[in-house]
Amino acid sequence: MIQSAPVTVPTRAAPEHAPPTAGRANRPTEIRSIGLVFLCTLVGAAAQILMKYGTGRLPANPGLAALALNLPLVAGFACYAVNTVLLVLALRRGHLSVLYPIIALTYVWVTILSPRIFHDPVNALKAVGVGLIVIGVSMIGAGSRA
């Protein structure tokens, strides 16, 4: 029964380091990839917040040791590394033109979180900006499934 199910795996069996065939490169974007980029934006927001928090606690003229021992800063860099890995994994199964603009959600998380963490002021302009980005990203995502 399982064997009779239509399974599409030939793309996985593509020869290593072969240039992408039109079929592989142009398949529609998978939901899994959209989920991975979504996760990427959360990790990216964490990276930005950690780095801002870390740089705020640095002395005036930090040496290399002060940078390396600054835990939030190091954690921020680590988040950027995870961020890149997630993005590449997402890009394996989807269009760059769909997945890349989703990264703009990072602005949304940072704008929502920084008033809580850094007591940045909240205002209507930021709220409108967040709303527009969410609508724009949803539109691109929805368009990729249409």
Partner: peptide, 8 residues
């Protein structure tokens, strides 16, 4: 949206 966040 990014322009608005920049303005804000």
């Amino acid at each position: 949206g990014v322009l608005f966040i920049g303005l804000g």
